[in-house]
Structure formats: structure tokens, C-alpha cells
């Protein structure tokens, strides 16, 4: 399977060099990307993930593939740690 990327141009260039397969630089492509059965992992930069917050949370609660990873892009933004949210939901306290 393959790696998909949603992010700014710099992140796309970087991961293109690294060997990722599918790229999108706007959040409208999200729905299409998560339905893509070829993708095992979908990398989203924090800046874009912030705008897709709800969709990402829903996807993580209901679906499996592609697994979403949020990474800091070139531009640093304040963001929520969504994995931490899953942890809090599961064990009721904040850990790690």
C-alpha cells in the first residue's frame, strides 16, 4: 500500500523526495483521499489538520485505513493533540 500526503507545497516536495505516492494541497481532497483503498497512511500537516479536525476525529473513531498521522509542516501552528484525546476517552485521564 501507499502513503498519501495533504499539506503545503514544501511538505509535499519533501515527502515526494522520500517516496510518498499521492499528494493534495487542499483540504477538499480529504474525503477522496480517505476513501482511496490504496493508501495505508495519510500524512496531514498540522496546519491542514486543524481545519479538518472534526473529520479526522470521526475517521479515527469509525474507520481504520488509511491511518492518519499529523506532522508539523514547515509552518509551525498551534494544534491539539488528537491522539491524546483518544487516550483521554479511553482511560479517563491524561497520560503521556
Amino acid at each position: 500500500m501507499k502513503v498519501g500526503v495533504i499539506g503545503d507545497e514544501d511538505t509535499i516536495a519533501l515527502l515526494k523526495l522520500a517516496g510518498a505516492s499521492k499528494f493534495a494541497s487542499n483540504i477538499e481532497k480529504f474525503d477522496e483521499m480517505v476513501r482511496d483503498e490504496e493508501l495505508a497512511i495519510l500524512v496531514i500537516t498540522d496546519e491542514f489538520a486543524e481545519k479538518l479536525r472534526e473529520k479526522i476525529v470521526m475517521h479515527r473513531l469509525q474507520k481504520e485505513f488509511p491511518f492518519i498521522v499529523e506532522i508539523p509542516g514547515k509552518k509551525k501552528v498551534e494544534k491539539e493533540d488528537t491522539i491524546k484525546k483518544i487516550i483521554v476517552r479511553a482511560v479517563g485521564v491524561e497520560v503521556g
Partner: peptide, 26 residues
């Protein structure tokens, strides 16, 4: 860049496992 992607894949594995296990715990 390749090194970074390797790490991202490892991270995806860890976070994916947390996601699946978290759901089951709930």
C-alpha cells in the same frame, strides 16, 4: 527526507495501534 518518512511510518504504526486499542477499551 527518506529518514523522515521512515519515522513517520513508525509513528503511524504506534498511533494507529493507540487508535484501535482506544476504541476497544471504550
Amino acid at each position: 527526507a527518506r529518514e523522515a518518512l521512515n519515522k513517520i511510518v513508525e509513528l503511524a504504526e504506534a498511533e494507529g495501534s493507540i487508535q484501535m486499542l482506544g476504541r476497544e477499551i471504550e
